[in-house]
Nucleic acid binder design. Sequence first.
DNA 1: ACGTTTTGCGAGAACGCTCTCGCAAAACGA
DNA 2: TCGTTTTGCGAGAGCGTTCTCGCAAAACGT
Lengths: 347, 347
Amino acid sequence: MAKPTLNDVASAAGVSRATASRALSGYGRISPITVSAVKAAAEKIGYQPNAIAQSMRAGKTRTIGLVIITDFTNVFFNRATKGIVDTARAMGYQVLIFNTNEDVVLEREAIITLTQKRVDGLIVVPSTAEGHEHLISLTKSRTPLVIIDRVLPGVKATSITTDDASSCEAAVDSAVALGHRHLAFLVATPTVSGYQSDVPQLLNSAIESRVKGFLAGTQKQKKIRADWIFCDESPETALEAAAKLCDSPMRPSVIFTSNNDMAQAVLKVVAERDLIIGKDISLVTVDDSTWLEAIYPGITVIQRPVDELAQLAVTKLVAQMETSSKRVETILLPTKLVTRGSIADLS
Amino acid sequence: MAKPTLNDVASAAGVSRATASRALSGYGRISPITVSAVKAAAEKIGYQPNAIAQSMRAGKTRTIGLVIITDFTNVFFNRATKGIVDTARAMGYQVLIFNTNEDVVLEREAIITLTQKRVDGLIVVPSTAEGHEHLISLTKSRTPLVIIDRVLPGVKATSITTDDASSCEAAVDSAVALGHRHLAFLVATPTVSGYQSDVPQLLNSAIESRVKGFLAGTQKQKKIRADWIFCDESPETALEAAAKLCDSPMRPSVIFTSNNDMAQAVLKVVAERDLIIGKDISLVTVDDSTWLEAIYPGITVIQRPVDELAQLAVTKLVAQMETSSKRVETILLPTKLVTRGSIADLS
DNA sequence: ACGTTTTGCGAGAACGCTCTCGCAAAACGA
DNA sequence: TCGTTTTGCGAGAGCGTTCTCGCAAAACGT
């Protein structure tokens, strides 16, 4: 009842194992008659080649590892995952997924397991801004590696990120042009606990880029006030932080949030206070979602090219794997400010 | 520069390959001194066991295949994927993911590839309501298989689904109790193209269960009107169908949608017509999302126990794999109607 | 002190595949 | 016709493990 092997095919076809392999894999010298005989025999006994044995022989697995935060609430990583899985499949590769929940211990374990499973390459969203020895040792052992949504100065690997800074700056400009003079930034980052109004010393590059963009936007304007709140990623803290902004005697006229979870917290708090988005208070966030378009008013958003990023991650990785080139690229994809109805016109 | 093998460890430690294996894998008779010597040698040369070779030898891969619709807009499958990946990891298994986009051709290919990669078991969300020969042949070759979110009468495999019918019925009851007499059902199903008001002959079991629940709810009441619209899953059709409902001279007072995408279409159409959810028109949908709670008013929803389902899928599958029992179970998990503010009180 | 059991380890096979090598038979050339 | 090239195929090795078997040395029993 065991799965038929190449040996079974060979004896069914009355040839040697070598010939059977030649017939099925199409290499070497073999007569057309034998080929069809072997193929018929294989079909008949329901032969399925053992990819494990093939990998063993070839030293390649046609599998890539994905180490990511597959948080279901985060559109960006959901879409990226789907994009990576689909692109990989189209190129003949399968994807072994690990989810880290931004825990560097899980990340390290994931990478060890994937190395042991001998994946041909890895796509990683690193969870912390430091402590990347495990990634560095990957590059040292010449394992193809692509880092997405983060840039890690210490790691010599291709990284693909989005240019959040310029769109964030554009978002600030846009709000200021509409008459806003009191801006607030609600930024979620795993490196703080609770919330605080001063910039944490450690930010991952994606968040850092957004902060820089917002900052650049505010600093080039005169006479505007900018409040900052950095908070951890728990829904409770997000609500507290959003409430603090809304209940302040000096309520900002526009809130910029660094991700959809924060935007949701703002929406909730705003609704509880009977305020109307796009009228009493304005909102801009990062990463588009169908929800941001479905609700009323639509939320103005910084759209990031996630499908392109996913596709590029796979193609760059596969290029590395198949040519074993050591060329490291740092790719920055453009983002777009999509204007909907959530910024009030105060002018 | 090639990866060190067990042979390298053995010669570094001055023992045989067999002894090195014994020391690292902890079996057979071996002296404690040798064990630590071998471990030290392994550590020193940076040995990582080759899981491919282990799989080859053992005939097990400690990998499970997941064939699913990883549509980023669908909370249910996102959460299920995350739950499955995390539970599997905790149990020492890795997950190879395939996305079918509900295309049975891709599903078939995915299953062939996974069989060839010799996964120890499979979790599948079948894409069509018929044509499951590939799944049947899986069960015939005794590959452990768990089907989630669908029940396939022809396939002898464990299936885990949610009891959508009873909650859908409860949702209807709840609306009727609040004075609603004209109900509409907007149901997305891949088996129709465009939209139609009569029940299609072919529905997958998940959709069927919801339709049955809605029907049961309406049929036990007197003097109420129920409109049905079945439509494909494209955003455009969804909007058309939602518009048709809202623009009808006899506009229903409450709309039930079969998933979040349809709910979004309704929200959009309703907003365009300056109607207010929970006041001018009511809405209930299936599958909770943080958005349904964040927006105002919160949308009343039929919550399905997706984390439990994911966990159960993995544990049941692993149980099958590790005991090679052939026991087939059909598990139905309870759902919950979570009331928020989206059903107007007309009484 | 001698026989018996226990202990520790090495030799070698096996998992299923691919591919090199060599050999016989067929095809070719003059 | 005989020598040379080409063709088709089988034998066998090797990828990196695990594990059975057998053997020598150590430990034990009387």
